[in-house]
Design a protein around this nucleic acid. Sequence first.
DNA 1: CTCGACTCCTGTTAGC
DNA 2: TGCTAACAGGAGTCGA
Length: 260
Amino acid sequence: MPEGIEVEYYRIGALQALGRTISSVAAEDNYYLKGETSSEELYSFLVGDEFTAARRIGKLLLLDSKGGVTLGLRFGMTGRLLVDNVSSIDHLEYSSTRNESFWDRFSIEFEDGGLLTIRDPRRLGSVELNPKVDNLGSDIYQIDGRGLNVVLRGSSRPIKARLMDQKQIAGLGNLLTDEILWRSSIDPRRSADSLSKEEKRCLLYHIKSAINQLTELGGSHMGKLQDNRVISGFCPKDGAFLERYKVGGRTTYSCPKHQR
DNA sequence: CTCGACTCCTGTTAGC
DNA sequence: TGCTAACAGGAGTCGA
Protein backbone atom coordinates (compact mmCIF):
# COMPACT_ATOMS: atom_id res chain seq x y z
CA MET A 1 0.00 0.00 0.00
CA PRO A 2 1.19 3.54 -0.43
CA GLU A 3 3.55 4.54 2.34
CA GLY A 4 6.04 7.40 2.19
CA ILE A 5 8.15 5.60 -0.41
CA GLU A 6 5.27 5.06 -2.83
CA VAL A 7 4.09 8.64 -2.44
CA GLU A 8 7.62 9.80 -3.25
CA TYR A 9 7.26 7.88 -6.54
CA TYR A 10 3.94 9.62 -7.07
CA ARG A 11 5.59 12.99 -6.41
CA ILE A 12 8.18 12.33 -9.08
CA GLY A 13 5.40 11.28 -11.45
CA ALA A 14 3.50 14.47 -10.63
CA LEU A 15 6.44 16.57 -11.83
CA GLN A 16 5.12 15.79 -15.32
CA ALA A 17 1.97 17.73 -14.46
CA LEU A 18 3.72 20.99 -13.58
CA GLY A 19 3.35 24.08 -15.76
CA ARG A 20 0.29 22.80 -17.62
CA THR A 21 -2.90 24.84 -17.61
CA ILE A 22 -5.84 23.13 -15.92
CA SER A 23 -8.98 23.05 -18.05
CA SER A 24 -11.29 20.91 -15.95
CA VAL A 25 -11.73 19.15 -12.60
CA ALA A 26 -13.77 15.99 -12.03
CA ALA A 27 -14.54 15.42 -8.33
CA GLU A 28 -17.95 13.74 -8.31
CA ASP A 29 -17.20 11.47 -5.36
CA ASN A 30 -18.08 13.67 -2.40
CA TYR A 31 -16.82 11.08 0.06
CA TYR A 32 -13.37 11.59 -1.42
CA LEU A 33 -13.27 15.31 -0.55
CA LYS A 34 -12.05 16.02 2.97
CA GLY A 35 -12.22 19.03 5.27
CA GLU A 36 -14.06 22.06 3.92
CA THR A 37 -13.21 21.12 0.36
CA SER A 38 -16.08 21.01 -2.13
CA SER A 39 -16.27 20.11 -5.77
CA GLU A 40 -17.27 23.67 -6.72
CA GLU A 41 -14.39 25.13 -4.74
CA LEU A 42 -11.88 22.85 -6.43
CA TYR A 43 -13.27 23.82 -9.80
CA SER A 44 -13.23 27.56 -9.20
CA PHE A 45 -9.75 27.60 -7.68
CA LEU A 46 -8.02 25.28 -10.11
CA VAL A 47 -9.47 25.82 -13.58
CA GLY A 48 -7.21 28.21 -15.47
CA ASP A 49 -4.48 27.75 -12.90
CA GLU A 50 -1.37 25.58 -13.16
CA PHE A 51 0.82 23.61 -10.71
CA THR A 52 4.27 25.00 -9.99
CA ALA A 53 5.66 22.49 -7.49
CA ALA A 54 5.12 18.93 -6.26
CA ARG A 55 6.04 18.43 -2.61
CA ARG A 56 5.55 15.55 -0.22
CA ILE A 57 5.33 15.28 3.55
CA GLY A 58 5.06 11.68 4.66
CA LYS A 59 2.16 10.12 2.79
CA LEU A 60 0.68 13.47 1.77
CA LEU A 61 1.35 14.75 -1.73
CA LEU A 62 1.14 18.54 -2.14
CA LEU A 63 0.70 20.32 -5.45
CA ASP A 64 1.24 24.07 -5.24
CA SER A 65 -0.48 26.26 -7.81
CA LYS A 66 0.55 29.53 -9.41
CA GLY A 67 -2.67 31.05 -8.09
CA GLY A 68 -1.57 30.37 -4.53
CA VAL A 69 -3.58 27.29 -3.48
CA THR A 70 -2.17 23.93 -2.50
CA LEU A 71 -3.88 20.71 -3.48
CA GLY A 72 -3.36 17.89 -0.99
CA LEU A 73 -3.68 14.29 -2.16
CA ARG A 74 -3.85 11.22 0.08
CA PHE A 75 -3.85 7.70 -1.27
CA GLY A 76 -5.12 5.57 1.58
CA MET A 77 -4.43 1.91 1.16
CA THR A 78 -5.02 1.33 -2.54
CA GLY A 79 -4.77 4.72 -4.26
CA ARG A 80 -2.49 5.25 -7.24
CA LEU A 81 -1.58 8.45 -9.02
CA LEU A 82 -1.85 8.40 -12.79
CA VAL A 83 -0.39 11.18 -14.89
CA ASP A 84 -1.42 10.98 -18.53
CA ASN A 85 -2.71 7.47 -17.76
CA VAL A 86 0.72 6.32 -16.60
CA SER A 87 1.31 5.23 -13.00
CA SER A 88 4.72 5.49 -11.38
CA ILE A 89 3.89 2.21 -9.62
CA ASP A 90 2.35 -0.81 -11.29
CA HIS A 91 2.04 -3.10 -8.28
CA LEU A 92 0.45 -2.18 -4.96
CA GLU A 93 0.38 -4.71 -2.14
CA TYR A 94 -3.21 -5.55 -1.01
CA SER A 95 -4.73 -3.73 -3.96
CA SER A 96 -6.44 -5.33 -6.91
CA THR A 97 -4.36 -6.62 -9.78
CA ARG A 98 -7.00 -5.22 -12.10
CA ASN A 99 -6.85 -1.64 -13.26
CA GLU A 100 -10.32 -0.23 -13.85
CA SER A 101 -11.10 3.36 -14.79
CA PHE A 102 -14.33 3.27 -12.75
CA TRP A 103 -12.10 3.39 -9.68
CA ASP A 104 -11.09 6.94 -10.65
CA ARG A 105 -12.16 9.10 -7.69
CA PHE A 106 -10.64 12.43 -8.70
CA SER A 107 -9.30 13.79 -11.94
CA ILE A 108 -7.78 16.96 -13.35
CA GLU A 109 -7.70 17.62 -17.08
CA PHE A 110 -5.14 19.88 -18.72
CA GLU A 111 -5.62 22.07 -21.78
CA ASP A 112 -3.21 19.85 -23.71
CA GLY A 113 -5.60 16.90 -23.19
CA GLY A 114 -3.53 15.17 -20.49
CA LEU A 115 -4.87 13.96 -17.12
CA LEU A 116 -3.88 13.68 -13.49
CA THR A 117 -6.00 11.02 -11.79
CA ILE A 118 -6.31 9.17 -8.50
CA ARG A 119 -7.42 5.58 -9.10
CA ASP A 120 -8.43 4.05 -5.77
CA PRO A 121 -10.58 0.87 -5.47
CA ARG A 122 -11.20 1.10 -1.73
CA ARG A 123 -11.79 4.85 -1.53
CA LEU A 124 -9.63 5.37 1.54
CA GLY A 125 -7.68 8.19 -0.10
CA SER A 126 -8.80 11.80 -0.18
CA VAL A 127 -8.43 15.22 -1.77
CA GLU A 128 -8.19 18.42 0.26
CA LEU A 129 -7.57 22.04 -0.66
CA ASN A 130 -4.91 23.74 1.50
CA PRO A 131 -4.57 20.84 3.96
CA LYS A 132 -3.09 21.41 7.41
CA VAL A 133 0.47 20.12 7.50
CA ASP A 134 1.78 21.43 10.82
CA ASN A 135 0.44 18.37 12.63
CA LEU A 136 2.78 16.07 10.71
CA GLY A 137 6.11 14.92 12.17
CA SER A 138 9.51 14.75 10.50
CA ASP A 139 9.46 13.18 7.08
CA ILE A 140 10.95 9.68 6.82
CA TYR A 141 13.67 10.85 4.45
CA GLN A 142 14.70 13.62 6.89
CA ILE A 143 14.61 11.85 10.25
CA ASP A 144 17.79 12.19 12.37
CA GLY A 145 18.97 11.09 15.81
CA ARG A 146 17.68 14.20 17.52
CA GLY A 147 14.26 13.82 15.91
CA LEU A 148 14.04 10.13 16.79
CA ASN A 149 14.92 10.88 20.41
CA VAL A 150 12.05 13.33 20.63
CA VAL A 151 9.68 10.77 19.12
CA LEU A 152 10.64 8.05 21.60
CA ARG A 153 11.07 10.07 24.76
CA GLY A 154 8.33 9.94 27.35
CA SER A 155 6.00 7.61 25.46
CA SER A 156 4.87 4.35 26.93
CA ARG A 157 3.05 3.37 23.74
CA PRO A 158 4.31 0.34 21.86
CA ILE A 159 7.30 1.37 19.75
CA LYS A 160 5.51 0.30 16.56
CA ALA A 161 2.43 2.44 17.26
CA ARG A 162 4.67 5.40 18.02
CA LEU A 163 6.67 5.02 14.79
CA MET A 164 3.49 4.77 12.73
CA ASP A 165 1.97 7.87 14.33
CA GLN A 166 2.08 10.44 11.53
CA LYS A 167 2.28 13.27 14.07
CA GLN A 168 5.62 11.82 15.18
CA ILE A 169 7.18 10.56 11.95
CA ALA A 170 5.41 11.16 8.68
CA GLY A 171 5.51 8.39 6.11
CA LEU A 172 5.96 5.08 7.94
CA GLY A 173 3.17 2.58 7.30
CA ASN A 174 2.54 -0.93 8.53
CA LEU A 175 4.84 -2.84 6.19
CA LEU A 176 7.80 -0.49 6.53
CA THR A 177 7.50 -0.41 10.30
CA ASP A 178 7.42 -4.21 10.61
CA GLU A 179 10.45 -4.41 8.32
CA ILE A 180 12.42 -1.77 10.24
CA LEU A 181 11.74 -3.31 13.66
CA TRP A 182 12.59 -6.75 12.31
CA ARG A 183 15.93 -5.45 11.00
CA SER A 184 16.54 -3.65 14.27
CA SER A 185 15.82 -6.80 16.36
CA ILE A 186 13.30 -4.87 18.46
CA ASP A 187 9.96 -6.32 19.60
CA PRO A 188 7.16 -4.06 18.27
CA ARG A 189 5.33 -4.24 21.63
CA ARG A 190 8.19 -2.72 23.62
CA SER A 191 7.33 0.67 25.03
CA ALA A 192 8.85 3.50 23.03
CA ASP A 193 10.80 4.97 25.92
CA SER A 194 12.38 1.64 26.89
CA LEU A 195 15.04 1.61 24.18
CA SER A 196 18.69 1.81 25.18
CA LYS A 197 21.07 4.26 23.54
CA GLU A 198 22.48 1.42 21.47
CA GLU A 199 19.02 0.26 20.36
CA LYS A 200 18.06 3.78 19.36
CA ARG A 201 21.19 4.10 17.25
CA CYS A 202 20.45 0.74 15.66
CA LEU A 203 16.83 1.75 14.98
CA LEU A 204 17.87 5.03 13.37
CA TYR A 205 20.35 3.22 11.15
CA HIS A 206 17.71 0.74 10.00
CA ILE A 207 15.08 3.40 9.40
CA LYS A 208 17.46 5.21 7.07
CA SER A 209 18.89 2.17 5.35
CA ALA A 210 15.52 0.43 4.89
CA ILE A 211 13.98 3.59 3.43
CA ASN A 212 16.87 4.10 1.03
CA GLN A 213 17.10 0.46 0.06
CA LEU A 214 13.39 -0.07 -0.51
CA THR A 215 13.17 3.20 -2.43
CA GLU A 216 15.76 1.80 -4.82
CA LEU A 217 14.08 -1.59 -4.99
CA GLY A 218 10.69 -0.10 -5.85
CA GLY A 219 8.46 0.10 -2.78
CA SER A 220 7.65 -0.66 0.84
CA HIS A 221 6.60 -4.21 -0.04
CA MET A 222 10.14 -5.12 -1.18
CA GLY A 223 11.47 -5.74 2.33
CA LYS A 224 13.12 -9.00 3.37
CA LEU A 225 10.31 -9.76 5.79
CA GLN A 226 7.42 -9.14 3.40
CA ASP A 227 7.22 -12.56 1.75
CA ASN A 228 6.93 -14.13 5.19
CA ARG A 229 4.28 -11.75 6.54
CA VAL A 230 1.72 -14.54 6.21
CA ILE A 231 0.21 -17.04 8.62
CA SER A 232 2.91 -19.57 9.58
CA GLY A 233 5.57 -17.50 7.84
CA PHE A 234 9.09 -17.84 9.22
CA CYS A 235 11.94 -15.49 10.01
CA PRO A 236 14.35 -15.12 7.05
CA LYS A 237 17.14 -14.44 9.53
CA ASP A 238 17.00 -17.46 11.81
CA GLY A 239 14.12 -19.63 10.60
CA ALA A 240 11.83 -19.31 13.63
CA PHE A 241 8.09 -19.13 13.02
CA LEU A 242 6.87 -15.55 13.11
CA GLU A 243 4.38 -14.35 15.69
CA ARG A 244 1.23 -12.64 14.44
CA TYR A 245 -0.78 -10.22 16.55
CA LYS A 246 -2.18 -6.68 16.58
CA VAL A 247 -0.40 -3.54 17.64
CA GLY A 248 -2.38 -0.32 17.53
CA GLY A 249 -5.07 -2.19 15.60
CA ARG A 250 -2.67 -3.24 12.84
CA THR A 251 -1.58 -6.74 11.93
CA THR A 252 1.97 -7.22 13.12
CA TYR A 253 4.52 -9.93 12.40
CA SER A 254 7.68 -10.32 14.42
CA CYS A 255 10.29 -12.93 15.21
CA PRO A 256 10.13 -14.26 18.80
CA LYS A 257 13.73 -15.40 18.58
CA HIS A 258 15.68 -12.29 17.67
CA GLN A 259 13.25 -9.38 18.20
CA ARG A 260 13.40 -8.52 21.87
C1' DC B 1 -2.35 15.80 27.07
C1' DT B 2 -2.08 10.40 25.86
C1' DC B 3 -3.77 6.23 23.95
C1' DG B 4 -6.69 2.10 22.95
C1' DA B 5 -10.96 0.90 20.67
C1' DC B 6 -13.85 1.50 17.07
C1' DT B 7 -15.31 2.90 12.28
C1' DC B 8 -15.08 3.71 7.41
C1' DC B 9 -14.07 1.95 2.56
C1' DT B 10 -14.34 -2.57 -0.99
C1' DG B 11 -11.76 -6.39 -3.57
C1' DT B 12 -10.07 -10.79 -2.46
C1' DT B 13 -9.99 -15.10 -0.35
C1' DA B 14 -10.78 -18.85 3.03
C1' DG B 15 -14.16 -21.95 4.41
C1' DC B 16 -18.50 -24.10 4.68
C1' DT C 1 -20.99 -24.36 -7.09
C1' DG C 2 -22.43 -20.31 -4.52
C1' DC C 3 -22.60 -17.91 -0.63
C1' DT C 4 -20.86 -15.47 3.65
C1' DA C 5 -17.58 -13.68 6.74
C1' DA C 6 -13.10 -12.31 7.62
C1' DC C 7 -9.27 -9.70 6.24
C1' DA C 8 -6.24 -5.97 4.52
C1' DG C 9 -4.46 -0.75 6.49
C1' DG C 10 -4.57 4.75 6.46
C1' DA C 11 -6.81 8.00 9.05
C1' DG C 12 -10.34 10.17 11.77
C1' DT C 13 -13.31 10.17 15.95
C1' DC C 14 -14.58 9.12 20.64
C1' DG C 15 -14.16 8.32 25.45
C1' DA C 16 -11.39 7.00 29.52
